[in-house]
Amino acid sequence: MEPPRNLTATAQHLHVALVQTKPLKGRYAENLAAVQSVFAQIAKNVDLVVLPEAALSGYFLEGAVYEVALSAQRFAGDLTRAWKAACGDRRVDLVCGFFENDEGTYYNSAIYLEIERGEARTVHVHRKMFLPTYGVFDEERFLSRGRRLQTFATRFGTMALLICEDVWHAIVPTIAAIKGARILVVPSAAPGRGIESPGELGSILRWREILTITAAEHGLFILYAGLTGFEGGKGMTGSSCAIDPRGELLVSAPATEPCILLADLDLREIDLARASLPLLGDLEAVLADLLLDDELPLPRRRDDAP
């Protein structure tokens, strides 16, 4: 099963802005207005703007999540109007995390929009698959799991959206890469913890390790946008960053400050990195042997049995 390749993507560069937002809890309209002024502030041309998970509502909402959740269509409309008000007809692709209400089923989602001449096309909505429900987290009490990991074509090549804990399971970015992703976009909301490590909070170091190792293993760019600000004593760790396909950090943000990161990605780096370290090609060759292993606890149709 050869995944489709990026036959139509011709862009060699991607100018990305990672916007590390600090929303006011539950105040969607005010947060949208703040993001609109950020759009206006992005003076130079950007091709893609990425905002964090729950960027316009805050993350820890408990039962109030139902009050701020929106349909993907409504959310796309709001973002598009904000962009148009700030930047007119300028073309841009936008990624933003939001709580989605799909006719009464609620998800922690992220949307990928293409906006051109003020008109938006929803390219993809990813619903977070791994909902942390342990310790400080309680997502699955209020939200449903996304069930599909899809990649999607953009003018910059095939991408995948993964939200926060989705990336912590190595198999998820692995499958995204196998399905053709050349850029992983990761909106996140990561509460900081761990004061034992030197230099940084332990959770920040752990995130950075996961992202750099993932980027280098599969030879892809990772664009990570982290929420910042304290929510009821729980500090979101920001630390947005862009990582290149060799696992090198291109730019990174501090933990506690709202900010905008700008980076120019040379998309030709992906093929070069994969030529130097062809792990993804190797994996494609043995993936079936790994996944069709009878000892794996996977449901199988009768005629699949050996």
Partner: peptide, 12 residues
């Protein structure tokens, strides 16, 4: 609120 802008370093 204005957001500080942090640009990636020029490629070496």
């Amino acid at each position: 609120m204005t957001y500080r802008v942090i640009e990636a370093a020029a490629l070496s």
